[in-house]
Design a protein around this nucleic acid. Sequence first.
DNA 1: CAGTTATCTGAACATGCGTTCGTTTAAAAC
DNA 2: GTTTTAAACGAACGCATGTTCAGATAACTG
Lengths: 195, 195
Amino acid sequence: MARTQGSHSGITGPRVRAAALQLFAQHGYAAVSMRQIAREVGVQAGALYNYTPDKQSLLFDLMQTHMTELLAAREHSPRGATPTEALEHFTRLHLRFHSERPDEVFIAYMELRNLTPENFAKIEELRRSYEDGLETILRAGVNSRDFEVNDPKIAAMAVIAMLTGVNTWFREGGRLSLTEVEQIYWDMVRKAVGA
Amino acid sequence: MARTQGSHSGITGPRVRAAALQLFAQHGYAAVSMRQIAREVGVQAGALYNYTPDKQSLLFDLMQTHMTELLAAREHSPRGATPTEALEHFTRLHLRFHSERPDEVFIAYMELRNLTPENFAKIEELRRSYEDGLETILRAGVNSRDFEVNDPKIAAMAVIAMLTGVNTWFREGGRLSLTEVEQIYWDMVRKAVGA
DNA sequence: CAGTTATCTGAACATGCGTTCGTTTAAAAC
DNA sequence: GTTTTAAACGAACGCATGTTCAGATAACTG
């Protein structure tokens, strides 16, 4: 099913990114070769360089796109009238967004060390921005006495770590539905911050 | 300072494991070559094969040792008279043990996919055994009405994910001492399970 | 239908990989 | 002080790596 020369598919670009995403998530960036990605797409290795300047950019683009979409999803999601409501929205959005993108999440957490220092700094800034969003909600809740949180910065990290951990075991069609998982985790998060 | 031929150091074996640990944690298993490990030890690549049959065994040994020591630490730690006490011991032990071994923890969570299927199965069994320990505590607490937990298995995963997340930011000598971190996290865990 | 252009091939490049092995060395054993 | 032996060297193995590029091809343009 090898693609023939000269064919203007117009969809090879997305297919390259999709193949890289899946392979990086499964085997790790360093363990995946450009030839493997090319084989998955049905093309020779050289053809990949019509769509990415190099392997590093392929990784960076995947991570940047993921983080940007995460932040965009936050902006387009309801704010919540109270800190408790805002925290519930954050929790549910995080679970939903991450469960829909297991490969992206895996890469975003596992492949940071394979970014060049410059690329790493850019991704870290996006991540910090996301964490700050949660921290802001927690601080607001502490001020309004809705929450009982000792250290909002650490609580934000703890909550995100807990929520992201879902991706290590959750599979659509398993014992629990996403809705049930959301409820269970929102319960634990709410209690953990004393709301 | 290259080690000369024929020197019976008797300590090269541990040095090989230490170098592999540090390099695997920093760059990832797939990105580290046997020659890099050898250079770190001060030896030629071929000499490593006096201490490990191959690269894969090096990784597996590091992970197996880590998990075995974790389970051993659990066994030698106090049981706790009540479920709440048991959970507090678990929480504090986890934080203390993991904060002392950042490299081992990183590898144990990141390099699972680089294990052969047989080695992966062995490590997974050790991990499951650890998770089961926490799940047992949670079930006991639910039965005794000390805890309010919807789904003990998921709560166990959630708590472990939250606690292990500490390793992404905690550094000795930072803003908070380990003792303070323990207290903050025990607070959140206790509340999250409704104790 | 001819000309242009985007797309892909396939070979090549230098470099690095994990692993093996005959040889050399220096410490240990007697 | 000689023999033994564990430990390390250093070259070699076949193969894979990321990337480049001249040449071939097929779809689009006029």
